[in-house]
Design a protein around this nucleic acid. Structure first.
Length: 462
RNA sequence: GGCUGCGUGGCAGAGUGGUUAUGCAGCGGACUGCAACUCCGUAAACGCCGGUUCGAUUCCGACCGCAGCCUCCA
């Protein structure tokens, strides 16, 4: 029985879908003005695994991840670059998709864009005004009147008084209350703008998610996810907008993933301490990055360091080494495995405890190595198939062992490696250990590790 | 200042009121010409101080330390 930690109640709750057998999931995606960093990768991978596991549990999942393609930062960056907003956002949408694909992230069912949802956004703002939750000010902005919404603060665990006490933003004269937030921004000269009943302008950040989630999933859906930093104010404001406009609960389960940190500090653009997915993938293969992300529970902080990535790489190398010989049985379904499959399900059912699920896989690997040693081919092929089956949930073991262990090499390099191995084996046959070790040292210097197993020598990259 | 969350062995990271997490690294052994791989064995932990309890790393309270949100941020 799946339990999910709900940010609304701050507890694990048994998951019950609104509609039997179906899950409607919305995740806040990227603002596209720059490359994805590891923090973005974490959101993508975490909710990819959530989606995969829900599907593996028999649910028909509709997964929506939006794209914010109009906001202040985008306008600023486009101006800096001297390019159009459209060319900037198209470029970074493409870059984002490249990163997501590289990381093995399954594409969402739909990826709605703010700029393509203007009619719905404007309509929703009109509804909010009509219902008394919003007001247009003289300067052409439209604001949400926070005092009108009773539940304001229920997600982030604050109340309006506390927020006022902590207020440290310059007061905006156009607002009735400093806590009110903008739904529609009047256009300044030279800024991109859409026509609206309040004049030319563009939407505030929060309203797009309320409009798009309702359009794609309906007014009431199952799960809403995103990074922890969106809990306040973004998600709090979404609740105020959606529930104000629709008059019903909008989301049953809120899920927030923890931050990626560097030296115990949040990785973020403003701190400048981020690594892009692109640069990490130059050093580590995508599954190593996925494995690293999944070693920690999704709500815990994840500390990024070379050492952590190296550990993930070593661990994954051991899995692929175990998978090298047996031909994985192709029709294994982990659900049918009483022992390991049951433990895996228990771990994943417990709020997607991937760290615990990985420890089950480690036990499978050990069992696999044992049966391989005793030449129990049938059992080895079964356990290899079981690992691959678990891998479909976590997005691991999606390549052949050889492609992971050998990397991509041009033919001449492989020929050279193989000829050196042959030279060494000839020397070994002659018991010329000095020569044999000399050749092996040469290969080591090339980043090649040799493994002599049962009369044959295999190699892999370090 | 307000509000949240966290503090586990060398490192990473789950979990639990009394019994092995797991991975990486280490140590001993088997295998090997030597290694590597693999297997077997092994050691090592629960921030500090009180309380509840027969017993607490696990529950409660204080303290210390760290992080996050309160402003754009995944």
């Amino acid at each position: 029985m799946l339990q999910i930690h709900n940010s609304l109640s701050k507890q694990k709750e048994v998951f019950t879908p609104i509609e039997l057998g179906k899950v409607k999931l919305y995740v806040c995606g990227m603002t596209v003005y720059d490359l994805c960093h590891v923090g973005h990768a974490r959101v993508m991978v975490v909710f990819d695994v959530v989606t995969r596991y829900l599907r593996a549990s028999g649910y028909d999942v509709t997964y929506i991840r939006n794209i914010t393609d109009i906001d202040d930062k985008i306008i600023a960056r486009a101006n800096e670059n001297g390019e159009s907003i459209q060319s900037l956002t198209e470029r970074f949408i493409d870059e984002m998709n490249q990163d997501a694909d590289a990381l093995g992230v399954i594409r969402p069912t739909l990826e709605p864009k703010a700029t393509e949802s203007m009619a719905e956004i404007i309509k929703m703002i009109e509804t909010l005004i009509n219902k008394g939750f919003a007001y247009a000010s003289d300067n052409g902005d439209v604001y949400y009147d926070v005092s009108e919404f009773d539940g304001y603060g229920k997600l982030s665990g604050r109340n309006i008084d506390e927020l006022r006490a902590g207020e440290r933003v310059a007061v905006n004269e156009a607002k009735n209350d400093p806590l009110d937030f903008v739904l529609w921004k009047a256009a300044k000269p030279e800024e991109p703008a859409w026509d609206s009943p309040w004049g030319a302008g563009r939407p505030g950040w929060h309203i797009e998610c309320s409009a798009m989630s309702a359009t794609c999933l309906g007014e009431h859906f199952d799960i809403h996810g995103g990074g922890q930093d969106l809990q306040f104010p973004h998600h709090e404001n979404e609740i105020a907008q959606s529930e104000g406009a629709h008059g019903c609960q909008s989301v049953n389960y809120w899920m927030h993933n923890g931050f990626v940190r560097i030296d115990d500090e949040k990785m973020s653009k403003s701190l400048g301490n981020f690594f892009t997915v692109r640069e990490v993938l130059k050093k580590y293969s995508p599954e190593v990055v996925r494995y690293f992300i999944l070693t920690s529970h999704y709500r815990s902080p994840l500390n990024y360091s070379d050492e952590s990535l190296e550990q993930a790489k070593s661990a994954l190398t051991r899995y692929y080494t175990a998978l090298r010989d047996p031909e994985p049985q192709s029709d294994v379904d982990w659900h049918d495995d009483k022992e390991f499959g049951g433990r895996f399900a228990d771990a994943m059912d417990d709020d997607f405890n991937t760290a615990l699920a990985l420890s089950v896989m480690a036990d499978v690997r050990q069992a696999l190595n044992k049966v391989s040693e005793s030449n129990d081919t049938v059992q080895a092929e079964y356990l290899a198939g079981l690992l691959v089956s678990f891998g479909t949930v976590l997005g691991l073991f999606q390549q052949s062992a050889d492609s992971f262990l050998l990397g991509s090499n041009d033919e001449s390099e492989v020929t050279k490696i193989e000829s050196l191995i042959e030279q060494r084996n000839t020397a070994r046959a002659d018991k010329d250990w000095t020569k044999a070790d000399q050749v092996r040292d040469e290969l080591t210097a090339m980043g090649i590790v040799l493994e002599d197993v049962t009369g044959k020598t295999t190699w892999r990259k370090t």
